[in-house]
Amino acid sequence: MDAATLLDDKDRRIAGEAGIAVFADRLILDAQPPVDDEVLAAVTARCAGPLPEALVALWRVSFGGRIDYQLDGQISFTELFWPGSDGYQDLWGWIDHEATSGTVRFLPFGGFEYLDRIYVDTLAGPEHGRVVYWQQGLPPGWELTVGDRADGLAADVRALFGQLALEDDPWAGGDADAGADLRDAIDELAGDQPVVAGKLRDLVRGAVLDWHAALAAGTLAGEPRLRRLALDRAASAGDLMLLERLGAAGCDLAEPVRGGLTAIDIALVNGRLEAAEGLLGRSVPVTNTLRTGAHAVTAELARALLERGAVVTADAVGGAIDNDDPEVLRLLAARMPSSGEGAEARALVPRLRMLAAQAALAADRSGDQRMRDRATVLRELADMISAGAGS
């Protein structure tokens, strides 16, 4: 059921008094008052063309606020910019940031801090109203890809809001990545306005992604967002039986699920070695497995991954430093590239020497040979990197 059917004008007024607005069946928290014609004209004057109808419709409902849903992929969208907001920049500040020649074609209207921004195309023509994003790249070792990214996101602002969803029911318990603020705002309203709160709760629950139902119905393989979520959940939990079931249902177990990570990468991130070994038997790609899982793999699994073509990078070696088995670090250190990642490798040296000293001290106190081996490997790797830096 949609908002037009659920909510009447009185319901919307009550929700608005609690700081909640509804646009395209999604809730906006800390909703700001609707935009007026004077401000609309001022914003339009800064743009390359007319403001798209869907953006104006959003602003007529709420000219700014907070978003507590998730977009598909890694793009974060938590704020609708407005004049005078207390974010990194307000709406005018972001417009000034983008206006290199006086006007902007792509109008920034929301995003996440300074890392992710969402824009609408204001240039008259076939692309008018299209939503695009820009995302700042993170430093090496934080993600698999490097550099800033930009791409199309939705046909218009209404379609963008239609993509907002929740991976978990906020009222079902657990540590959901989004939706807790929605839940809390509705629960607070329920004390005085239980009927309106119940309607808003139904709207929120209507945005929860139900991959279980799609799997049971046999439609999961044809629904990319649900399919990726199912693979992510199964791999994170190390549920090999579920992974096999997903494969049998037509899901590609080698598909990138999030941030370029595949199911085997996610299993290793979470230390689910049995699931990773099971996926290895399905001949899935292993390129990034040691970058994500060097902290958790056994030496035997590390050898298997290396034989299959797993890439060793400085950040993979950095992960292996945290592995309890010094043999894993020794294996990866022997495969570390001698060029191309010199700065990242050299950055490891102080940490290696500190950890080597700590391991040696622990070995002296306990007589633990494994800890003594760890100290030796750490010291040898630090010496090797230092020697390479000086050559």
Rank of each mutant, 00 (worst) to 15 (best):
M1R: 14
D9A: 08
V22W: 07
R26Y: 06
Q32C: 13
A45G: 01
P50A: 12
Q70S: 13
F77D: 03
T78N: 02
E79Q: 13
W82S: 15
S85V: 05
S85L: 13
V104L: 00
G110Q: 02
I118M: 04
R130K: 07
V131C: 11
L138K: 11
R149Q: 12
A154T: 00
D168V: 00
G179K: 07
D181A: 04
R183W: 01
Q193F: 01
V195E: 06
V196Y: 05
D202K: 15
L203M: 04
L203C: 11
D210A: 12
G218A: 00
T219P: 00
L220A: 00
E223S: 06
E223A: 10
L231C: 02
A235F: 02
A237G: 11
L246N: 00
L246H: 03
L261G: 01
I264S: 13
R272Y: 14
R272M: 13
G278N: 07
V286R: 14
T287P: 08
N288V: 00
T289I: 02
G293P: 09
H295S: 01
E300L: 15
G309L: 08
V311K: 15
D315P: 06
G318F: 12
N323V: 14
N323K: 09
A334V: 05
E344Q: 15
A345W: 00
V349K: 13
L352T: 14
A356W: 05
D364G: 14
Q369H: 10
M371V: 15
V377H: 11
G390I: 15
S391A: 07
